[in-house]
């Protein structure tokens, strides 16, 4: 029973292969290869950075920095075998994660009150994919505010798991924790989100420990 977790079907398997091929193409400096990587990963990475930082400007800066670092690593630092074996998606997300945490550390004081620094949609707005009716818009707005109230590690897991739809194996690689621990944390994060949704008026920030 204990060890059986690791043999579950991995949703991320096909993606990993694609990642290795793309990494090798970038390593060989094939024309257009890195553009393909940008097109494939820029939006997901931005979503993740935004989830952590709650600021579109910083998120954009982090993603661009991460792209430059990724390019340098793939072309200058890693050999071809390492590129081929690379799980590209978790690797890129991990890069963005580290840069985000650095950024947060350097401007921590301004992030203590998420409601005030929370951007109002004018720069890098949250975009609803479907549904134009008012009710739905309001629902999304509530959800958005509830997300902003969560502690950063809960928010990040929710982004990875439910927006990016990563498998637990991939999340484990990205954030460096065991899958078992992550299952519990994802569940608790969802619970925090539900709590924040239900009492938004009284909430000034969710202070639960994860």
């Amino acid at each position: 029973m204990k060890n059986s977790w690791t043999v579950g079907e991995l949703a991320g398997e096909p993606d990993r292969r694609e990642g290795g091929d793309l990494a090798v193409a970038v390593h060989r400096c094939e024309p257009g290869a890195f553009e393909r990587l940008i097109d494939r990963f820029e939006q997901p990475l931005f979503g993740y950075a935004h989830g952590i930082l709650q600021n579109a400007f910083d998120a954009q800066e982090v993603v661009q920095d991460a792209m430059m670092r990724a390019h340098k690593a793939l072309t200058r630092q890693y050999d071809e075998a390492r590129c081929a074996a690379l799980a590209l998606r978790p690797w890129l997300f991990k890069t963005v994660r580290n840069l985000c945490l650095n950024k947060r550390r350097s401007k921590r004081s301004s992030l203590e009150q998420p409601l005030e620094t929370f951007d109002d949609g004018r720069i890098g707005p949250f975009v609803s994919l479907e549904g134009s009716d008012l009710e739905r818009k309001e629902e999304i707005e509530l959800l958005r505010r509830a997300m902003a109230l969560l502690p950063v590690d809960a928010r990040e897991l929710i982004v990875l798991r439910f927006m990016e739809e990563m498998s637990y194996a991939e999340i484990a690689k990205t954030v460096g924790q065991s899958e078992a621990a992550l299952r519990g944390k994802v569940f608790r994060s969802l619970k925090l989100l539900r709590d924040a949704l239900e009492k938004p008026a009284t909430q000034k920030g969710v202070a639960y420990a994860m």
Partner: peptide, 21 residues
């Protein structure tokens, strides 16, 4: 919740494609 969260997708205002290229 999993379903609702999907609608929170964000996109960057402009792509970093040109700057990186």
């Amino acid at each position: 919740l999993a379903d609702a969260i999907k609608s929170l997708a964000v996109v960057p205002e402009r792509s970093c494609r040109e700057a990186v290229k």
